[in-house]
């Protein structure tokens, strides 16, 4: 990407300070500025890193982290608490139930509400299922990054069962919006409980199969 002894401009809005640096002549110095991202296969998200490199060595790294900022706080300004609940799903869509519960607990604390024990149990079950789902995705992508494709497939296959369980109760697979302020949306079905117990019987064995 070298043109007339200068680095070609990278098409991006205008962080002017960086642009000025980019136009430095390569012959003038050994250091090079490399723009990594916003889209890059190694970042698992949108993140831009401006790297000062000297050969293979990174001398300085300036991260630009705002690409995933969606202004949820600003959006929530005009919404009621219940309307803002679906936004909390999207904070971490791999463990959305856990985010919902955190949001509801905060409102209950403000209102001074006591949640019935049954709702607490249901929330715990859903929260733990969300946690397992999230951790399965973690191990899947982490293994994929170091070249272990099989673990990725195993973890995604096992996660599917949990997503089916979420769908059985809430109607949604990932963004569940299941808890409500003061309790939960609907009661768990018998079908869910049977499937959940069945899953617990087999899941540990599957988990062990992912060990190296």
């Amino acid at each position: 990407m070298i043109k007339n002894g200068k680095l070609l401009r990278i098409f991006y809005s205008k962080p002017r300070s960086v642009h000025n640096n980019m136009e430095r002549e390569i012959t003038a110095t050994k250091e090079l500025i490399v723009n990594m991202g916003p889209q890059h296969p190694a970042t698992h998200g949108v993140l831009r890193l401006v790297l000062d490199v000297d050969g293979e060595r990174i001398i300085k790294c300036t991260p630009y982290v705002g690409y995933l900022h969606r202004g949820i706080e600003k959006l929530s300004e005009d919404l009621t608490y219940v309307q803002a609940l679906p936004l909390t799903d999207r904070l971490d869509y791999l463990a959305s139930a856990a985010n919902n519960i955190g949001f509801c607990v905060a409102i209950e604390k403000l209102l001074g509400l006591e949640v019935p024990p049954r709702a607490k149990f249901i929330r715990t079950i859903m929260g733990e299922m969300a946690r397992i789902c999230s951790h399965l995705v973690w191990i899947a992508t982490h293994a994929l990054d170091i070249g272990a494709m099989t673990v990725f497939l195993y973890a995604m296959r096992d996660r599917e069962v949990f997503l089916d369980l979420f769908e059985m109760v809430t109607g949604a697979r990932m963004t569940v919006s299941y808890p409500r302020v003061g309790g939960v949306d609907v009661m768990l079905t018998t079908n869910f409980l049977i499937n959940c117990i069945n899953l617990l019987k087999h899941f540990q064995k599957k988990l062990l199969s992912m060990r190296p």
């Binding site: 809005s13 205008k14 962080p15 002017r16 982290v65 705002g66 900022h69 202004g71 706080e73 600003k74």
Partner: peptide, 14 residues
């Protein structure tokens, strides 16, 4: 510097 909004954003969103 600004961290979440672009560098040349005007105003303070929150």
């Amino acid at each position: 510097r600004r961290i979440l909004m672009p560098e040349d954003w005007e105003g303070y969103p929150l």
